[in-house]
Design a binder for these strands. Structure first.
Length: 170
DNA sequence: CCCTGATTCGC
DNA sequence: GCGAATCAGG
């Protein structure tokens, strides 16, 4: 799957919104988070909320076991403090604050829900329920779900992370 | 352990 | 240009 204009556009949008690379990758489908990150860098996007600093790494240069590359020590990389907004990642799920920007299409926030009907679900589609089950608006996420679970990467995190947090917090 | 982005480099 | 492998950090 290549980077079509639309996919790049979506990438830019989601990245700008603060979604993580893996989340974006999950929504795009067919690409890994590494692919997303790589593309982001190629597009000269990067550093928004800023996560891990960039201490100028240097590795993986010679597969030769006998060769020991000299360690270049000159980061010369100052973190340009530019972005004033977008400092924190969004952790929405049911938070009212989250709903602000997550309604670009009148759907949920995260992935581009496909609004699948129950009968349209396959074993590889995310079965995360969206909306009120009692309402007609109810639908399923429908994004790509691996074999590791019933949900896409994004919803899997929403579903399972709270559990670990509970364990830690409790 | 999970995750995050950053970087390098072979393709 | 692309992205897997790897690194570095939380």
């Amino acid at each position: 799957m290549g980077w079509t204009d639309e996919r790049v556009e979506l990438l830019r949008k989601l990245w700008a919104e603060g979604l993580s690379a893996s989340q974006i990758a999950a929504q795009l489908g067919g690409v890994s988070r590494n692919a997303v990150i790589g593309k982001v860098h190629r597009l000269k996007l990067s550093g928004r909320g800023r996560t891990t600093a960039a201490p100028a790494r240097q590795k993986k240069a010679s597969p030769t076991p006998a060769s020991r590359p000299v360690r270049a020590a000159s980061p010369a990389r100052s973190t340009s403090a530019t972005v004033g907004a977008t400092a924190l990642q969004v952790q929405f799920d049911a938070e009212p604050v989250a709903r602000q920007y997550l309604r670009p299409v009148g759907d949920v926030v995260v992935p581009i829900s496909r609004r699948l009907d129950l009968t349209q679900l396959t074993e590889r589609t995310c079965k995360w329920p969206n909306g009120d089950p009692l309402s007609e608006d109810f639908h399923f996420c429908g994004n790509e779900a691996g074999e590791s679970g019933p949900y896409c990467a994004y919803h899997a995190r929403l579903a399972f992370q709270p559990a670990s947090e509970r364990r830690r917090a409790r």
